[in-house]
């Protein structure tokens, strides 16, 4: 490992995303990226009895698919690092219950995808583990129920609201050579600019994304031109233009290379308001769609900045503002 600046690192050894797996709900499967997901369900229950079990099913699927594609058995894996949006990380914890391997649960709200990937790559680089599975999940109905209202409650959502993605994404991190190498990461700080509107998490997370991307470029001594794509997690159609303007006012122009996972996941006629969000959003878009594009050669080097809003409904009702965090991981296409 080599420390870069104050918040970043590069890996000393070549560490790869050996394989990935994704499993998604009906809206994601019917969306523009539908064909890039390994498994998709027609029904939000995914064949289970309740929403929480459905989310665990998605998480288990993504892991199973990853192992199958890699031709591996659970005993070949040293460690499982996972997280989700629910209280006490139950989806990840209960999935780990059946996995019989070392487990680290992580919570970074919707930034957990890159949080787990960064830590896993670091542990593999250091030789603490040979193969690590990282996985995250979210489910529209479990999130609605925990953070907002019962799913059948007639509440008119404003157009700034995002829709929690239903799905799970898993990445297997190891030193087995593959087409996707993990180059390094920038770990974000918690940033709170005083946003209070829980129906606009996109703009609440922009200052965190701005801070991490700016820090990343300075720590790595790079400019946006060094990347074929800088992709944010779920800043939505409201937050994305704010991020671009905010970075431009610092002399950093990402207009040509920026995309947002939440805006890629659905088409505008799917009624998803400002776009997708949730822990699964950045995970399924990155592990499904973006890695496919990298393997095809569309992108050579990308920066994935997953953004998370770290509030709970209780503290929001107590008039607290919404703190946010963003973590970046650099992925590079390996030739040959």
């Amino acid at each position: 490992m080599a420390k870069m600046g104050r918040q970043s690192w590069t890996l000393n050894n070549a560490v790869y995303i050996e394989e990935t797996g994704t499993s998604v709900g009906p809206k994601e499967g019917k969306g523009p990226l539908g064909s890039s997901f390994d498994k998709s369900y027609e029904n939000l229950y995914c064949g289970e009895d309740n929403w929480e079990m459905a989310e665990r099913k998605l998480l288990q699927d993504s892991i199973q698919v990853t192992l199958e594609k890699a031709g591996l058995k659970p005993q070949h894996i040293d460690m499982f690092i996972a997280g989700d949006l629910l209280n006490q990380n139950v989806s990840a914890n209960y999935t780990a219950r059946d996995m019989d391997m070392s487990y680290l649960g992580m919570f970074g709200a919707c930034s957990t995808s890159m949080e787990t990937l960064a830590i896993a790559s670091q542990l593999v680089d250091a030789g603490a583990a040979d193969r690590i599975l990282t996985a995250v999940s979210s489910h529209n109905a479990t999130a609605e129920r925990q953070f907002r209202f019962p799913t059948e409650y007639g509440n008119q959502k404003p157009e700034t609201a995002t829709s929690t993605a239903t799905g799970a994404g898993c990445a297997l991190v190891s030193r087995e050579k593959s087409k996707i190498r993990i180059e390094g990461a920038t770990i974000g700080k918690v940033v709170d600019f005083g946003a209070t509107n829980a129906f606009d998490l996109g703009s609440a997370m922009v200052p965190a994304a701005h801070d991490t991307i700016k820090r990343h470029l300075s720590d790595f001594g790079r400019t946006p031109a060094d990347y074929d794509l800088i992709v944010t997690g779920d800043l939505s159609s409201v937050g994305s233009p704010i991020l671009k303007d905010m970075l431009r006012s610092d002399g950093i122009n990402i207009d040509a290379v920026h995309k947002d996972c939440g805006n890629l996941l659905y088409t505008s006629d799917q009624g998803m308001l400002a776009g997708g969000s949730g822990t699964a959003c950045s995970a399924i878009v990155t592990y499904g769609h973006l890695l496919d594009e990298m393997k095809k050669g569309t992108y050579k080097r990308i920066l994935v900045t997953a953004t998370g809003a770290l509030m709970s409904p209780t503290v929001i009702r107590q008039k607290e503002s919404i703190p946010a965090i963003a973590h970046s991981v650099v992925l590079v296409r390996e030739e040959g």
Binding site: E159, T160, F193, G194, A195, T196, D200, S203, A204, V206, P207, H210, V238, G239, P241, I242, D245, M246, S249, D250
Partner: peptide, 20 residues
């Protein structure tokens, strides 16, 4: 950084990006 993106002005600035 542009002052409209400073912490104290951020909420107002963000609202100007809202769809009407």
């Amino acid at each position: 950084m542009d002052s409209k993106f400073k912490k104290e002005n951020y909420n107002k600035t963000a609202k100007s990006y809202y769809p009407k």
